[in-house]
Write a protein that binds this DNA or RNA. Sequence first.
DNA 1: GGAATTGTTTATAGTGTCGAATTAAATAAA
DNA 2: TTTATTTAATTCGACACTATAAACAATTCC
Lengths: 402, 402
Amino acid sequence: MARGRESAANLNRVLAEIRRLGAAARVDIAAATGLSAATVTLLSADLIAAGLVEEAASEAPNARGRPRVMLRLSPGALHVAGAKLSDSKITVAILDFAGAIVAEAAAPLLSRRPTVAQMLTQLDLAFAVALETAGLMERDIAAIGLGAPGFVEGETGRCLWSPVLSDPAPVDLLGPLRARFGCPVFVDNDANLATLAELWFGLGRGRRDFLVVTIEHGLGMGAVIGGRLFRGARGVGVEFGHIKVQNDGALCRCGQRGCLEAYVADYALAREAGAALGTEVGQGPLLEQLFASARGGDAAAQSIFRRAGRMLGLGLANLVNLFDPPLVILSGERMRHEPLFAEAIMAALSANILKLDRPDPEIEVHRWGDTLWARGAGALALDGITPDLAAARRAGASPRSV
Amino acid sequence: MARGRESAANLNRVLAEIRRLGAAARVDIAAATGLSAATVTLLSADLIAAGLVEEAASEAPNARGRPRVMLRLSPGALHVAGAKLSDSKITVAILDFAGAIVAEAAAPLLSRRPTVAQMLTQLDLAFAVALETAGLMERDIAAIGLGAPGFVEGETGRCLWSPVLSDPAPVDLLGPLRARFGCPVFVDNDANLATLAELWFGLGRGRRDFLVVTIEHGLGMGAVIGGRLFRGARGVGVEFGHIKVQNDGALCRCGQRGCLEAYVADYALAREAGAALGTEVGQGPLLEQLFASARGGDAAAQSIFRRAGRMLGLGLANLVNLFDPPLVILSGERMRHEPLFAEAIMAALSANILKLDRPDPEIEVHRWGDTLWARGAGALALDGITPDLAAARRAGASPRSV
DNA sequence: GGAATTGTTTATAGTGTCGAATTAAATAAA
DNA sequence: TTTATTTAATTCGACACTATAAACAATTCC
């Protein structure tokens, strides 16, 4: 290929492979990408000259032969910030180029449903604290990623609906962020960020195809297909929380009825908790009380979890039948808290997926905190700038001599 | 790029663009692919020398300037065969390189659920007739595509379950076909072929993203994402007919309960038709009688279609929420026959998709006969061999001089 | 008829990749 | 210790591919 600028495709493949494997020798990269060893040498020399990659001794030397020289990302090459908006606070993490968290901070949202402008103020606050902790200046941040719950178009940066923002329906997230920060900015649905975090740092590392389902205040989902995040054809895809599992069923936050989320998400359980706990509502968050009652053997509380699990299992089975993934990652604290819930999910899932002559998909449970959602947002930022970066740095910093 | 053999990537892009547009001038191709005009000239010269492409006068001359010379596929460059296995017969079509049907033939299946060997015998029969009609010899056929209902892994050619074959569960379709025919052979799920036919010749022509749902004896689905057929992560994907719309619901052919197909497909309606028509069962196929009764105002018959439509609409809404496609193509004769059915679908669909600040997906109805399914199988064959072909022919036929 | 417009082709040059040979760094065997 | 073997990385030459720029071709407009 001789496409002047903008090519650099193989350069990025090498970089992506190093990121995927954490540390890889040139031979490994050549094998994984199908490039020749000569080309990998050339390209990695460029990456090293650009300061993005560095050599390291192999910690597990091979039996014989010349020892392999490992390549890894230079952590200090640049830093990015990731922010995760939840229903009560905004969390910011600062990541180095290798994806490690350098600093983090959170700021509470001052109202229950802030405007974008109010949200930005609090983001700024947390951002400043995180920078301070990391010992960095704002100009050291090469890109910023933001994840928000709701329907977010990654491409345009428009949020078509969100349960946590009060602005009227289609609100531009990208514009205000761009106006505030000088660096490239990326926004996406928060579940997609959790998925990216699994792909880059979690259970999905090195996997080409898997689904992630997040259960927290709402119900979210992300899909990795062919090693890349699948966002649906028009950018707002895989809205798992709003597939319908019941005709004319329970009322959902989105205004429709019968959404899966309306049976499974935190707010849905809290809605039922009142009825189950009856007059005995005590102190503390409703959901915690519900957990306690179920563990204590309360039949009504248990039935809430059992029904929620059955519904989620059914929805998961449909996902598996449609996407045919080898791995499904369930992420959410409740999976640990409530064994009844997990049991009901697994039973409904295995009863409703196609039984073929091959292994069922693996189901893994993974618990994430806000920090790690923010890390996913950082991954989005890294993912967004890395390609251009590699090409640009090569053009500028290292004029490969002739 | 300088990848000795095997590259030819841009060569295939040019070829694909010509196929997509039907006829295109070199400038059009350059604009669509992003290649330079000079490169397009070079590459198309190779394709012409290889006999795959030919020039043709532009039928709609532009206002001024030098008139564009259109390029189109040379129909006679090669021929392929496509075969579609249904529950009662096997249909074979022979296509030229441009995708036009040159001949077709069908042979009945001699038993209700034949073995692969018996199916092959009938395929052979129809194939021979079609060859005769086309005036071709078997060695003129460059590749063969076969579509079968059920769960078919396109990659491995294994059929994991099929309602029309009697062999035990995982049966190899590719092996026997390869043994019988000398040319490359491709197999796939029949709904994927209908989807490919829509992409190449139908309503999906030139579209990058859409879904196809087929309603005939069973319920099938195919997805085009980014201009390519999406087969799910492990090859057996998008099994729309077997997503669950009811907990512990109606019994499906696949052995599970609550599958959408068990409410919507022909056999499901036929199952209910007995009850609706009661003792008045007359002559002719049950389904036709059901159509007639519904048109005649029979409340029981109408309610069958209404429920089926509601279920399908719900399932479609879930698909739309997950894949977020701009276009959904519904294919099946019933859509024309029974307006009640179509109405119920649309109502349930529009009630259950996410309402966002943007247009709802287009819903198109398209009726296919077995011929066109077979054409899709031919498209599979063309799709399979074209890339190698272009490279091989160039290497052999036209040693571009230096 | 000349100018403008549009499409295609012809040099020319630059770039990226590969294959083969070479060098480097280690261990195993003699 | 010396020599072979194994594996990793680099260098070098060849060349296929593509782009840029300019020329060429075939029209219509004025």
